[in-house]
């Protein structure tokens, strides 16, 4: 994926939500390229399993516990990653969830707060902790997970989540522009439904409708998103910044 062969070799990516889904696929694709992967997740055991798989696949991995909603936990995880690999070249804020499906009038404050803490504050905290390090290196790439739901609004199934991803989208634009002249790029990815454990909260009817409504008649695969993370972090992609990239199979939303 990079312009320079072996571009990713011995470079380090810090991934949140690395134990499953898109985070896990991304860990394995960076492993293929010989990278160091700081695999963080609230599921510490899951993170360690992925770190082992990264090593088997040709990269260097470390599994680290990280609750992205807790600043101390994020700071600790970043310190551990830096201690182990000496640097963080890329940050992929993949940890996220719609928590549960709900119609607008059914969203209670608890669901609202949990959704925003995880998806928005988690992304905010990780960027605030990693950016000073990237600035001191004069280089870095941050990839955040937004969602095609920022265009659909999550009507009748997850407006709490869709609006939180709207915040991530906008946060990315701001950060992308604030640090552009100092070598740090920041962009977001906006997939339509992807076939991961994220969908465990989706009913069969919901998934069928989402597949039926997609021009390609299928969900995205986590590998397809992960390859895009790799490309956007690479030296082949140095002029894309602040924007969100849609991976939707041509979805009309």
């Amino acid at each position: 994926m990079p312009k320079t062969p072996n571009y990713f070799k011995n470079k380090t990516i810090f991934i949140t939500g690395a134990a499953s889904g898109i985070g896990k696929s991304t860990a394995m694709i960076f492993a293929r390229e010989g990278s160091n992967v700081v695999a963080t997740d609230i599921d510490e055991k899951g993170a360690s399993v992925i770190a082992d798989q990264v090593v088997q696949a040709g990269g260097n991995g470390v599994g680290v516990h990280c609750d992205v909603t807790d600043r101390n936990s994020v700071e600790k995880a970043v310190s551990l990653g830096l201690e182990r690999f000496g640097k963080i070249n890329f940050l992929f804020n993949s940890a996220g969830s719609a928590i549960k499906r709900a119609k607008f009038l059914e969203i209670d404050e608890d669901l609202w707060d949990q959704t925003y803490n995880l998806n928005v504050k988690g992304t905010f905290l990780c960027m605030q902790v990693v950016i000073p390090h990237m600035l001191s290196e004069g280089k870095g790439v941050i990839v955040n997970m937004a969602s095609n739901a920022t265009r659909t609004g999550g009507a009748a199934k997850s407006p709490h989540y869709a609006s939180a991803k709207g915040a991530v989208h906008t946060l990315t634009i701001g950060v992308g522009r604030e640090f552009a002249s100092r070598g740090v790029r920041c962009l977001s990815l906006s997939p339509s439904a992807v076939d991961t454990p994220f969908q465990d909260i989706s009913s069969k009817e919901m998934l069928d409708a989402s597949i039926e409504g997609n021009p390609m008649k299928r969900m995205g695969t986590p590998d397809e998103i992960a390859e895009m993370v790799l490309f956007t972090c690479s030296d082949a992609c140095e002029f894309i910044n602040a924007d969100t990239l849609y991976l939707t199979g041509g979805s009309k939303a």
């Binding site: 790029r185 390609m216 390859e227 002029f239 910044n241 602040a242 924007d243």
Partner: peptide, 25 residues
């Protein structure tokens, strides 16, 4: 480089959209 990525087998789920290569602007 972006043109090549879009043509590649690493990018099978992007279609119809436009990809902005704008330096953030």
């Amino acid at each position: 480089e972006v043109v090549q990525f879009l043509c590649s087998d690493a990018c099978p789920y992007i279609t119809a959209d436009t990809i902005k290569i704008s330096g953030g602007g």
